[in-house]
Nucleic acid binder design. Structure first.
Lengths: 123, 123
DNA sequence: GCTTGACCTAGAGTGCACTCTATAACCTAG
DNA sequence: CTAGGTTATAGAGTGCACTCTAGGTCAAGC
C-alpha cells in the first residue's frame, strides 16, 4: 500500500501519517525505488488501535511512548500493561461521568420542552 | 463572592474566569467600590453546567453561543434545546463507542497478563 | 514527451483553550 | 504606615495536535 491508501482506509490524512512517522508513532516503513513509503497490512490494525488511544484522550506523547515500547518487544509488556491500565481506569470513570452528564442534558432538554409547550413561559 | 472564591469553588482558575467573562461565557458582574467583581451564588450553578458542556467536548465557541442565547431570555429556548439535543445525541454515540473501547482495552490488558504469566513469550 | 496526480522533505502556520506576565491599585493585619 | 495578598487590565506566550506550503521528484497514461 502507498500512503494515500492507508490514509483513505484509516481516516488519517496523508500529512498526519507522515507526521506520526516523524514523531515515532508509526515505525519507519520500507520505501520503493522512488523513495515512497510502502506499507504492509499490519499498519491498519495498529492505526486502528492508535485511534482508540486517541479517542480515550491519551495525549500523543503517551501514544508515542506506547509505540516505542511496542517496538522494543516483549520486555516492555508489563510497562505497556500498566500504561493501558491507568488509562483504562480513567476511562471507566469518564464513561460513568459522561453517562451522568447525558442524564443532566436529558433533564435540561425536558425542561426546555415543557417551557416551549407552556408557550414560552418560565426558565 | 470575590473571584478567588469562585475559582476555588468551581475549579476554574481566576485567569480562566476573567477570560470566560471576556469572551462572553460569563455575564459581566457587578463591581465593588474598588472595581472588583462581586458574584452571586448563581454563577456557581452556571459554571457547573458550563463544565458539563466542556466535558462533553462542546467547543468554547458553542458554549459562548449557548451563553449568549441564555442571556437573551426565553425567546431562544427552542434554539438552545436544539443545540443541546445535537450534542446529546453525539454524546450518546460517544459513550457507546467509549464503552466498546473499554472492552478493547480490557481484552488487550488480558492478553498482556497472559503473556506475562507465560513468562514473556508471545505477542 | 508531456501533463497529471500522487508522492517526497523541511519547516512554517493554524486553531483551540487557556495561561501567564507586567504593571498597577486596593484592603487588611500588624 | 507598611508589607502581603488579592484584585485589576491588556496583551503576550504556551502546548497540543495537527495542517498546510513551497518546492521538488517520479510513474503512468494520452
Amino acid at each position: 500500500m502507498m500512503i494515500g491508501e492507508v490514509a483513505e482506509k484509516t481516516g488519517f490524512s496523508v500529512h498526519t501519517l507522515r507526521y506520526y512517522e516523524k514523531i515515532g508513532l508509526l515505525p519507519e516503513t520500507l520505501r520503493d525505488a522512488g523513495g515512497r513509503r510502502v506499507y504492509g497490512p499490519d499498519v491498519l490494525v495498529w492505526l486502528e488501535f492508535v485511534e482508540r488511544l486517541k479517542q480515550i484522550g491519551m495525549p500523543i506523547r503517551d501514544r508515542v511512548r506506547y509505540a516505542e515500547m511496542r517496538a522494543q518487544g516483549d520486555s516492555t509488556i508489563s510497562a505497556r500493561r500498566e500504561l493501558l491500565q491507568t488509562y483504562r481506569d480513567d476511562l471507566a470513570k469518564r464513561v460513568a461521568s459522561l453517562s451522568e452528564t447525558l442524564d443532566v442534558l436529558d433533564a435540561k432538554i425536558a425542561t426546555y420542552e415543557t417551557a416551549t409547550k407552556c408557550n414560552g413561559a418560565s426558565q
